[in-house]
Write a protein that binds this DNA or RNA. Sequence first.
DNA 1: CCGCATCACTGAACCGGGTAAGTTGTGGAG
DNA 2: CTCCACAACTTACCCGGTTCAGTGATGCGG
Lengths: 337, 337
Amino acid sequence: MKRPTIADIARRAGVSKGAVSYALNGQPGVSEATRKRILSIAEEIGFNANSAARALSGARARAVGLTLCRPARILGIEPWFMGLISGFEAELGARSYALTLQVVATPEQEVEVYRRWWGERRIDGVIVTDIREDDIRIPVLQQLQLPAVVIGGPGDTGPIAQIWSDDAGAITEAVRYLVALGHHKIARVSGVADLLHTQNRTKAFENVCAALGLDNAITIPADYTGEEGSRATRRLLIGGDRPTAIIYDNDVMAVAGLAVAQEMGLSVPGDLSIVAWDDSPLCSLVHPPLTALSRDISAYGAQAALELLNAIDGRTVGNVEAGRVHLTPRGSTAPPR
Amino acid sequence: MKRPTIADIARRAGVSKGAVSYALNGQPGVSEATRKRILSIAEEIGFNANSAARALSGARARAVGLTLCRPARILGIEPWFMGLISGFEAELGARSYALTLQVVATPEQEVEVYRRWWGERRIDGVIVTDIREDDIRIPVLQQLQLPAVVIGGPGDTGPIAQIWSDDAGAITEAVRYLVALGHHKIARVSGVADLLHTQNRTKAFENVCAALGLDNAITIPADYTGEEGSRATRRLLIGGDRPTAIIYDNDVMAVAGLAVAQEMGLSVPGDLSIVAWDDSPLCSLVHPPLTALSRDISAYGAQAALELLNAIDGRTVGNVEAGRVHLTPRGSTAPPR
DNA sequence: CCGCATCACTGAACCGGGTAAGTTGTGGAG
DNA sequence: CTCCACAACTTACCCGGTTCAGTGATGCGG
């Protein structure tokens, strides 16, 4: 089956290619009558502009890129990324932008992918996640002048826009809630330590615990996987002076922690309260359902996509705070026995 | 920063654009010495061929498409799709093919996306998942002559290649295992009923139960979500003649089923044995860890990508069986009390 | 009735890589 | 020494949109 081109439309409408291009793009230069005729022919023959030709003649590629830099086994089970992706799609799909995905192993590879995409003119901009301190991707994106938005922070990303959520406020709320329930020994199992938002959370956790006079408020670094979550939980629970509540940096580790507690014969929430970060269906799936720090990940993604499209269109975008994180109490938290 | 083009390379090497093109693509027509010189210049200035120009001049777009047609809240938690995606990437990344993703709500929208992608020449082929009986996407793909591979089946997809796994054999193995443990009342909670692989599994389940003389071997249809998994499990467990073992069509529903059993005060595996389909980290995360029907999803995806690349290159591909599914016994199965 | 602006369009160049057809230059066979 | 085959290029056009510089035709004020 032959793909229709603007030349086909031009022939059928009895006008030139240029006129068709103006008509289809809503540019001035054709009469309303001709425009309507051309549009109806385009509709009739099922015309879609060849994205390659469009991109080649200096216009947009109408695609944005996303690299995922986490091991496959984490990606699979983490609801976070898929939530984000479906959020992107909501905005991108509406403007028929495509989303190009690449799974990589290291930040260095990510930089390579950015360079390749840029050289290939394959994408108009990128969405950057898992931002670190002094992230090596930032200077490269600036050098290439590739429009971008960073998800995460707040932190220093120079002129590149950030979409961030108030992690510090959220963890403060969680700790206050646990203290109000009567907990004094609260621990935390964190995600990958050199990610910016992990550091923000850790700092805020230490601050609020100090402010409330909690000692023993330690953070054990982990990596978001269930295995590490279990290991960290065991380390916390085997000591004599064990915590009565644990806050986990993601839902997967929280579920793993719950399993460890059950395995050790501890009752949740009787002996141990559990708070998960990021409220996915996973949290309401287990027994007892987990108290969680919820945010609308999909809306977060949609907002990021919108800001990126703005950046691509040359509108300057500043730092934006995404929707608030709020605590959703469920069966995994209670006053300590 | 200006993007280098083959014209830049040609100028620096003192040859014509054509020679550069031949050299970069490994075509005959240039001497080894010239080819090396050109390649080293390309390397030095960080050349990447403009994918738009390449696609426009009749060559490949070097991208493949994937549409995901499930509600966001399922996509997020289902490890299946992300596993598949990282499998694709392994093959695609190696040949620097891009993966273009689109989340849609209905099969009709999927067809629209295929048509648009085809018209835009944006992709060279598509990977089709969640295949149904008389799937509306198949005739469209044939009409457009868009290279494709179907994941799932076996079923009738005409000339389009399929990658399938032996679901019938797997469920037979699971039932035999439970019977060997001493179970007589085995139930199943299935995924979306009109998907082809669900039907294959249901048929095989009925066959093996009939062959082994099990009565009460009912299948309750669900939709892969935790909520439906819980509901189906409750329905099965409130009856007087409740099953002693349940097989779930995915891991999410199995975990939900486990929570329901615990909530009802039933011990797993003492009162109820649970088998999950698709062994994700989720299965070893909960307590007790779930016995599962394991397959290497990532390898499955890689194989599908490879076959698609073959199809794009014009090599005919037949139906391929992916790696075997095998039963991984864990703590959630035992002889009934 | 002339001159000028405006509209509605045409024609052609352009983007950057692929490739068929044409042009050298060289070596070896006859 | 001539002729031919072949390697090693160059030239020129193609892909399908976008865009800019024209070109008639029309309208309108003076």
